[in-house]
């Protein structure tokens, strides 16, 4: 009886594993296509040839790396991502500290409104941002798009960091207060090092949010500050069908995201539940 039961269990487990692998193949197929097509020539892709290892070449990558506009857009993406991340984590850490280590009447309302702000659709803001940025000369500037990305990253970072700040034992701050530390010194010298892991997690997710973002970049930037997602989308459309280059450039963009994703499994759920990773 026991033997039978365990055989049955094993069969179920094998069935589940089979199902899981099938599911995985479906989910990974479009990703694999993108990765492979980056190593095939446009002409090979457009002629509909079956995949063969002999087709593999880095020609599309070379074209992407030689494409000035694409390289500039990728550079912009890095600058905007880092800038928006630095701004959001700096400002967000202060606010998260303010919310979690002080008691004041509007505390809950403030924390919850940051969360609601994170969930507002970009389309509701972008028209107004466009008019505002055009009026004050921020349209098509790196600072402008950085600021726009902070509209979702600041609330996001605050909500991510609150639990990290709350977890710090109060004996630390009591001891420091007795020593005559100001709140600012306390924040800088005691809290920031203690929540450093949280800062890293929040920074990674904030960077990915900015890195993947498309709508603000599409509307608020032009030739100067255009970021990579917009540049990639312009590789396809009308008579331009450079699928190979599109996939090569996409692979370059996807690589850091996938590395972070796989490395940060433990934090993924909180990362997405705080408002989703979304363009």
């Amino acid at each position: 009886m026991i033997v039978k039961l365990s055989t049955r269990r094993r069969m179920i487990t094998a069935g589940v594993a089979f199902f899981a692998v099938a599911l995985l193949l479906v989910e990974l197929y479009p990703i694999v296509i993108t990765l492979l097509n980056g190593f095939r020539r446009d002409i090979v892709i457009l002629s509909g040839q079956k995949f063969a290892f002999s087709q593999l070449t880095t020609a599309s990558y070379m074209l992407v790396f030689k494409n000035r506009q694409m390289m500039k857009a990728m550079g912009n993406s890095i600058v905007v991502g880092l800038g928006s991340t630095a701004l959001s984590v700096g400002v967000g850490a202060m606010a998260a500290y303010g919310i979690s280590r002080f008691r004041f009447r509007e505390r809950n309302a403030l924390a919850y409104s940051f969360l609601v702000f994170r969930m507002l659709p970009q389309m509701s803001l972008v028209v107004a941002l466009y008019l505002m940025f055009r009026a004050i000369g921020l349209r098509d500037t790196l600072f402008g798009i950085m600021l726009a990305h902070s509209s979702f990253n600041v609330p996001y970072v605050i909500w991510m960091l609150i639990p990290f700040f709350s977890a710090v034992d109060k004996s630390y701050e009591e001891a420091a207060m007795v020593d005559g530390c100001t709140r600012w010194t306390l924040f800088r010298l005691i809290f920031l090092p203690l929540v450093a892991p949280g800062l890293v997690v929040a920074a990674v997710f904030a960077f990915i949010n900015s890195w993947n973002e498309f709508l603000y970049a599409l509307i608020l930037t032009g030739v100067n500050a255009r970021t990579a997602p917009v540049a990639i989308s312009s590789l396809i459309g009308g008579d331009t069908l450079t699928w190979g280059q599109m996939c090569a450039a996409s692979t370059v963009m996807l690589t850091p995201v996938f590395i972070f994703t796989l490395a940060m499994q433990k934090f993924l759920i909180r990362g997405v539940a705080a408002g989703g990773v979304k363009g």
């Binding site: 700096g90 202060m94 606010a95 002080f102 008691r103 600021l147 902070s150 600041v154 709140r183």
Partner: peptide, 27 residues
């Protein structure tokens, strides 16, 4: 008991400024 003293305002102002500039004002 933690954080009874002091005011949280200086820590909140930068975030509130950004929220005002890119969220509340555009709305």
């Amino acid at each position: 008991g933690a954080g009874g003293q002091g005011s949280p305002v200086p820590f909140l102002v930068p975030a509130l400024l950004i929220v005002f500039a890119v969220l509340i004002f555009p709305i």
